[in-house]
Each structure stands twice: as C-alpha cells, then as structure tokens.
Computed example of a mutant assay.
Amino acid sequence: MGLFSSEVPTAQPVQRGGVDLKCDHCGHDRFYQGEAQLHTLTGTLFGLEAFEGSADYYTCERCRRMHWFQQ
C-alpha cells in the first residue's frame, strides 16, 4: 500500500518460520503488515542507506504492539 493509496489495510493471520504469530502482549492473532528500511549512523553519513537491511513489522490489530522481524 502506497502513501497516497485509497486501499484500506486489513489485519490478517501471520506465519513466520512455520509458526503462527500471536501478540506477545494480548495474545491476538491478526496483524497489519509493513516493511521498514533500517539505517545506521555510518550508513546515513556516507549515503549508503540503500545497502542497509530492512525489516518486516506486524502491528497487532487489537493492542497495536509492533513485532519486528529482520529480513
């Protein structure tokens, strides 16, 4: 979903590494999915952000706790 997209995100069950994800805080099993670029100070200073990693994150539909998984 893009920044100016009219799509409404829907929470869905998630499986990572063959395990169904459950929220660590409330035990709920539906999440909104997103992806984030990871940055370091050194990479930012030298303009190397494109070579740094990214991570998937899942936000619990119920309590909004975020669960992060490095790619």
Results as ranks from 00 to 15, higher is better:
residue 1 M to F: 10
residue 39 H to A: 11
residue 45 L to P: 00
residue 13 P to S: 03
residue 9 P to H: 03
residue 69 F to K: 12
residue 31 F to I: 02
residue 41 L to N: 09
residue 31 F to R: 02
residue 22 K to G: 02
residue 2 G to H: 12
residue 69 F to T: 08
residue 16 R to C: 09
residue 11 A to E: 14
residue 63 C to F: 04
residue 16 R to Q: 15
residue 65 R to Y: 11
residue 37 Q to F: 07
residue 61 E to Y: 06
residue 23 C to G: 04
residue 27 G to W: 01
residue 65 R to H: 10
residue 42 T to C: 00
residue 16 R to N: 14
residue 17 G to I: 07
residue 23 C to N: 02
residue 48 L to W: 13
residue 71 Q to W: 09
residue 69 F to V: 13
residue 35 E to P: 05
residue 41 L to V: 15
residue 52 E to Y: 07
residue 2 G to M: 12
residue 15 Q to N: 08
residue 65 R to E: 04
residue 54 S to C: 03
residue 19 V to I: 07
residue 71 Q to H: 12
residue 60 C to F: 00
residue 33 Q to W: 14
residue 23 C to H: 02
residue 59 T to V: 15
residue 32 Y to M: 07
residue 24 D to A: 10
residue 38 L to N: 15
residue 66 M to S: 14
residue 34 G to L: 08
residue 58 Y to R: 02
residue 5 S to P: 00
residue 6 S to A: 10
residue 51 F to L: 08
residue 24 D to E: 10
residue 37 Q to H: 13
residue 28 H to W: 00
residue 48 L to M: 14
residue 54 S to A: 09
residue 53 G to C: 06
residue 66 M to D: 13
residue 62 R to A: 10
residue 69 F to A: 13
residue 22 K to P: 00
residue 6 S to D: 12
residue 32 Y to E: 01
residue 68 W to P: 01
residue 24 D to H: 07
residue 11 A to T: 15
residue 55 A to W: 03
residue 24 D to F: 08
residue 11 A to H: 11
residue 69 F to H: 14
residue 71 Q to I: 04
residue 51 F to H: 03
residue 60 C to P: 01
residue 46 F to C: 05
residue 27 G to D: 04
residue 44 T to R: 15
residue 9 P to M: 05
residue 54 S to F: 15
residue 28 H to C: 00
residue 44 T to C: 10
residue 69 F to E: 13
residue 44 T to D: 11
residue 30 R to K: 13
residue 20 D to F: 11
residue 55 A to Q: 08
residue 63 C to A: 06
residue 56 D to G: 08
residue 42 T to I: 06
residue 15 Q to V: 13
residue 20 D to T: 09
residue 47 G to T: 04
residue 68 W to S: 07
residue 66 M to R: 15
residue 60 C to S: 01
residue 9 P to V: 05
residue 69 F to W: 13
residue 12 Q to E: 15
residue 54 S to G: 10
residue 51 F to M: 10
residue 69 F to N: 14
residue 54 S to P: 06
residue 52 E to T: 04
residue 65 R to L: 09
residue 67 H to D: 03
residue 14 V to M: 02
residue 56 D to R: 10
residue 49 E to A: 12
residue 43 G to M: 03
residue 53 G to S: 15
residue 38 L to G: 13
residue 63 C to L: 06
residue 63 C to I: 03
residue 61 E to S: 06
residue 6 S to Q: 08
residue 32 Y to Q: 06
residue 55 A to T: 01
residue 11 A to Q: 12
residue 10 T to I: 15
residue 32 Y to D: 00
